[in-house]
Design a binder for these strands. Structure first.
Lengths: 333, 333
DNA sequence: CTGAAAGCGCTTACAG
DNA sequence: CTGAAAGCGCTTACAG
């Protein structure tokens, strides 16, 4: 059974397409319509089971009330809802849907990520794009690529210059982390990271280096620890404390430190970046946290304001980290 | 800066729209194109930052490679990603995105649920619809409503007659639960439910009643316990065991039973329906479980087969429950 | 109060 | 190898 279209409804009702269209979109109450005609059209539509073509309407109107979301990677959306699993994906979805629901926007999760210039060829019908810490560096010319997209874009957990973003203040978070360790008496403070999420981790690392310099300490090169993906850490540089760039890194580093026979926090203090709901909480790690859900929700709200052309939007925003003490930070006396 | 369209690209390249279109959709390799023309068009498109209009293409082609998802309620999507929270929403999303990614389909989460006949007016641009245990009974004429939708629909966790579904075998699950309790020596077995999710819980309840009858036991009316939403349970009927219709009901019932001074399982055994990852696991409740993720993933796969017109699809499917023993089921001797 | 017509941006037979 | 034209299904000035 093929879907009936406006033409068929109009024909059955014995009116023109224009009239049928007006009646079926009662939205526009300014144009007067005779009650008789209205009934004829309504019952014709009902009888034929008329469902308007979203594609045609959107093509004509230029708006779909749908936003698209680009995940961190093609695999990103697979992590949603894995219980106790990927806290970033889960918190993101929570903030995303919360904001989208509030504004009555549909959300399209963009799964067909082409790792080429073809990225923009398949975004579906969306009014704006939310870029969720997606690794743009893998495209030949990311700036040009996204400049070509004439609809609003908001970056989340990332802040390319010239663009609108909603992100955590990683530099400030690193500063906060360093200050806590200084306060506890540490001076030889390392920074532990992995190769992934380069841009994000670079910002956190720079924040660490800057805060150290500001405290009159020049971090020695070996204080920067890049955790290898598979092999184990053989030795540790002469540090009394370390900042881990995320929860995965923390868990890995924490267990490797113990494997080297060192005790936490007696021999080494550890402080980590974390999400509000991440499992690190269960380990009671000392951490600087930020709410992923809030950041994503703010990104969505900003995007929708941009789409709707609300001029009074407070555009980009940086969210401050908060320090949560835990058992992995000892005091050096 | 407005988005350039095909006409502008063609003009800049000095060719016709038809030619530009053919080149920009290299898919169709059957039509030969001179290399020279190809280069002109490609560079014009690049220079103008051409992004094709998804709406126009979909209107013309009739397919969007996007499926829409209707949640259990308008609030449903808000539960996604809430850590430790709504296991049904989380498991659903996991199965949903897993299957969608495998097939390269985008997913639109339908948030604008109109609680009226207007439901179909705002589904966005989708090729098919997944109905996730959505309460259809609240619409005046649900069957007609969805019959009017000329695209494929797959129901998940629900099985309206005449439709394609992917659902748990609730009747079989109840039978399994009763059998376990019978095996442990019980005969006076109650069924505990709440008012929500009526259709689903009705099926489970009927399964319980049928299995009891099959064992030669006629459940007494008071063995059916409807948990009040706010007030407490004052008394318990003379049963030695009870089956709870879901995890929320179990937690409520379990605590109220204890508030009445009864011990589990010494005074009363409890067995509950649950999801694979639901928190009940932490309580180590005796339960019959089914994988929500698997059921949803199968629904998505079926929907996509339907969309793509693959005739050899094994359509509707019922998933069997599995019994997981826990500490809440004692043996009556 | 109603209708004829243009046009949103594409794709694809069809004709050269 | 390339182009002119029809048409996907709507909405909305414009003219009555």
């Amino acid at each position: 059974m093929k879907q009936a279209n406006l033409t068929e409804v109009a024909k059955l009702a014995g009116v023109s397409i224009s009239t049928a269209s007006r009646i079926l979109n009662s939205a526009d109450g300014t144009i007067p319509i005779s009650e008789n005609t209205r009934q004829k059209v309504l019952s014709a539509a009902k009888q034929l089971g008329y469902v308007p073509s979203a594609a045609a309407r959107i093509l004509r109107m230029g708006a779909s009330r749908t936003i698209g979301v680009l995940g961190t990677s093609a695999e990103f959306f697979r992590y949603i809802g894995t219980y106790g699993g990927h806290s970033f994906a889960n918190e993101s979805m929570s903030g995303l849907m919360d904001a989208a629901l509030r504004h009555g926007y549909h959300v399209t999760l963009l799964t067909g990520l082409k790792e080429t210039e073809g990225l923009l060829q398949d975004l579906g019908v969306i009014d704006g794009l939310l870029v969720l810490n997606h690794d743009l560096s893998k495209y030949p010319d990311p700036v040009a690529l996204l400049d070509a997209f004439a609809k609003p874009i908001v970056y989340v957990f990332d802040y390319p210059s010239q663009s609108v973003y909603s992100a955590p203040d990683d530099s400030g978070g690193a500063k906060l982390a360093v200050e806590q360790l200084l306060k506890a008496g540490h001076r030889d403070i390392g920074f532990v990271r992995k190769a992934e999420f380069k841009a994000l981790f670079d910002r956190r690392q720079k924040g660490w280096a800057d805060a150290m310099q500001a405290a009159g300490i020049t971090p020695r090169p070996e204080w920067l620890i890049e955790l290898p993906d598979s092999s184990e850490l053989r030795t540790l540089p002469p540090i009394t404390a370390a900042i881990c760039t995320n929860q995965g890194t923390f868990q890995r580093f924490h267990s490797q430190v113990q494997a080297l026979g060192l005790r936490v926090p007696d021999d080494i203090s550890i402080l980590t970046f974390a999400h509000k709901s991440s499992p690190v909480e269960e380990l009671n790690a000392s951490r600087v946290v930020v709410s992923v859900a809030d950041i994503v929700a703010h990104g969505v709200t900003t995007l929708i304001h941009l789409i709707e052309g609300d001029g009074k939007v407070n555009l980009s925003r940086l969210f401050a980290y908060e320090y949560k003490p835990g058992i992995t930070l000892g005091t050096l006396t």
